[in-house]
Amino acid sequence: MIWDWNFTLEILPVLAHAAIVSVEATLIGFVLAATLGLVLAVVRIAIPRTGWTISVLVELIRSTPLLIQIFFIYFVFPKFGLVLDAFTAGVLAIGIHYAAYCSEVYRAGFDNIHRGQWEASIALNLSAWTTFRDIIIPQAVPPIVPALGNYLVALFKETPLLSAIAVMELMQTAKIIGSETFRYTEPITLVGLFFLAMSLVSAALIRTLERMLNQRATR
């Protein structure tokens, strides 16, 4: 018998528990990525002559594998006295990696703001902070929400990498079940199905969101 339903039911609660860790890592990682990405994009505009440095930084982060970045933070940072536990190190790496991608998304959003909006803000003597908070960000962010959503899904699909530094998320739990029972079929297939279900649901959500935002924009 290739597929054992009793075994499946037995491991389901264990995997469900691990799924919580995966989702936690995703959410914390994404909050980090979205915030840091916004900071990078704003700094690029607000402080002159930082554009080039940030471009190079983003290119560096995007050109190297996330797995190596996770290892770097987990293994190298302690040499400089910053000891992080596996979960924190992993989430930090994921957050920074996706911040690089998110900052480009925000940049596209800011680029779409008409020049006149900036000029009007200067004419009204608004401070840089008020301009960003009340004029630019409310116009720039809604159109890019679907793009950010796609990165949320992509980030979620990267969380199995945390198993490489033994964070007890879905993949690691499935692997441990596999090595204890010598049955890999059920745990790994279940993990795959879980990711598939989450991706399909979130893709549908993003499409709905996109439609809602488009309606609001055309009104």
Partner: peptide, 22 residues
Amino acid sequence: EIFRGTSALVQLFWLFFVLPQF
């Protein structure tokens, strides 16, 4: 849909660990 919907690492492990069982 399957290959975009699941993670690359899951696919790798599936082919590596599960395929031999078939």
